[in-house]
Design a protein around this nucleic acid. Structure first.
Lengths: 345, 345
DNA sequence: CTGAAAGCGCTTACAG
DNA sequence: CTGAAAGCGCTTACAG
């Protein structure tokens, strides 16, 4: 906790400018009801003095706060880091500060962080990271969000959050899932192992739904494939790859539901001396910056993370609409070196 | 800006508990001078009601703020994302929120962001990212920092900031530079191209100094080598690689001063069909998570970024010491697949 | 140990 | 258009 021996205050500016603090306040905040001449004088004085309003006093008095809160699963994860970069860019352009919270991918922590942000009196909250399919979690999230909106807060989410009813930027996960699965199917793969993160997440459900659609066109179903759930991280990818290879040594491709997992899959394949894509093809999802530079370059689904971050904050900066707004972030299949026609085809 | 129709206030808690707001305040903040019985009752009531103090009112009244500010060059960069992750972890453990600022690698923006954070009345500021060798910039930084500390703020930096005089976590950049250069020299490389970021940064100076030391032992000097300065990013690495290869086609190794640049270097080499490490060896610095999974796996210098973030905030959480504290973050040479003995040796 | 009251630095009806 | 004054929700000397 920091004690600030008071620096420059509004009274100081007012005195220097020879006006009341009321007038000084109006001039500085751009409120109407001050003659242009006076306003200009006040602003000049403030600038000369290097005066900056105390946010706490301002927020307390006005009941309004310029802060924006950002909730991510894990900022060290490139997917979220890139989203954060977009959010910071827009925030900075609007002269707003952003407070970041980690959820550690735990839904209860997520709700707690949301509440922490509300208590920190931010004016806007951006939630990056998928919603949950679990009704109980949805209900808790919704309660926090509605409480926040009831007091004038604005919220936007990135990813699909069933039932939340707020502005959202939603990536084309279904289409991406379909595209990447079609790609493998067209290459002749049928015995495809799937490495997925927590299936309770809407993102996972959507990507899997897309895969299911593609499989259907080939007379297959997800239930026919080994689908292994693990952490949505590099280590999770390793674990999933090991289980898939051990239990289904005949797979010709492993489809990971994000790039982090795909990197783990590649790692295990490398350890075991399995050639990629010679013996097994591997795909990712997201297209984080390094995906194209991996060993081998990863075939994946591109999502514009930074742009998604930008758009989410821009939505939240808009006044609340009667109906929640929704922006779709398009996907693009990036075919690179980690996939090839099935062996012996 | 958000208008909050006042939620639960301290008076509400006080009324429910049948005490004055003074007593309620003391009980909740853990201040001395309240009987344990009363304090307990107040806390119970507050918990039942779900009361959380208004940070703005609290900060305004007490002059103390629990917020921590984090200044990074670019949060989308894995180096900073991992540092941020460590900072968030510790902050969260101490119940503090962190506000993140982007500098876009511009020193003037950095100073401006520092000021913004001071104006936002955070209690602690962590500056991640190297200091500058330029005296003018140092002076500006120092002025902001001292102003902040004068009013009770605490600051810690990650990286060497000459003259700043604050607690610091400094990575072993000199040692790392020496280690990676020695590695290449031992492999027989003599015509080594160096891809560096802005040379006005202390980090760059230190890494180059280490390289110079290693070269010296072999009777060489940095001045004998093509050293190309570009942006400290993947694209900068590409640009540097192109210039090195065009102007010095006889290089047998390219030493990049961070992993991002190294990835760019690998990319250009790939485009031109130059085998790594068959024809040209490549090295990085930092060892971001994916470095070991690149094509080929990158030989680099490992730095414990997340731990550096943790330590920096922990230092800042400590009371100010008479003399600035300094923690060294050790480096470790990671030899992987991107380096090999010089061709034809 | 407990409470009444002043004060933190602003904003904003309310008068003029 | 301008200003005096109340009030935002807390903390903290100051009395008792």
């Amino acid at each position: 906790m920091r004690k600030h021996t008071s620096g420059l205050r509004l009274v100081d500016v007012a005195e220097h400018a020879g006006v009341s603090i009321a007038t000084a306040s109006r001039a500085l905040s751009g409120a109407p009801g001050v003659s242009e001449a006076l306003a200009r004088r006040v602003r000049t004085v403030a600038a000369e003095l290097g005066y900056v309003a105390n946010v706490h006093a301002r927020s307390l008095a006005s009941g309004a706060s310029p802060g924006v809160g950002l909730v991510v699963h894990e900022i060290g994860d490139p997917y979220f880091a890139e989203i954060a970069s977009g959010v910071l860019e827009v925030a900075s352009a609007h002269g707003r500060m952003v407070q970041i919270c980690h959820t550690g991918r735990d839904p209860f922590t997520e709700v707690a962080q949301l509440r922490a942000l509300v208590n920190a009196r931010v004016g806007i909250i951006v939630v990056a990271g998928s919603g949950h399919l679990d009704r109980d979690i949805q209900t808790r999230m919704k309660a926090e969000v509605q409480g926040f909106e009831a007091v004038g807060g604005r919220v936007a989410v990135i990813g699909r959050h069933p039932q939340l009813g707020v502005d959202a930027v939603v990536p084309a996960n279904v289409e991406g899932g379909r595209a990447i699965a079609e790609h493998l199917l067209q290459l002749g793969h049928r015995r495809i192992g799937v490495a997925t993160g927590a299936r309770g997440l809407a993102t996972m459900a959507d990507r899997l739904a897309g895969i299911e659609q593609a499989l259907g066109a080939y007379g297959l179903a997800l239930a026919d494939l080994p689908v292994v759930e693990a952490e949505f991280t590099l280590d999770g990818g390793k674990e999933a790859a090991r289980r898939i290879l051990d239990e289904h040594p005949d797979v010709t491709a492993i489809l990971a539901l994000n790039d982090d997992m795909a990197v783990g899959v590649l790692s295990v394949l490398g350890e075991r001396g399995v050639a990629v894509p010679g013996e097994v093809s591997v795909t990712g999802f997201d297209d984080v910056t390094v995906a194209g530079h991996l060993s081998p370059a990863l075939t994946t689904v591109h999502l514009p993370m930074k742009e998604m971050g930008r758009q989410a904050l821009e939505l939240a900066l808009l006044p609340r609409a009667a109906r929640p707004r929704r922006r779709t972030a398009e996907q693009e299949l990036m075919v690179r070196a980690s996939t090839a026609a099935v062996r012996g085809r």
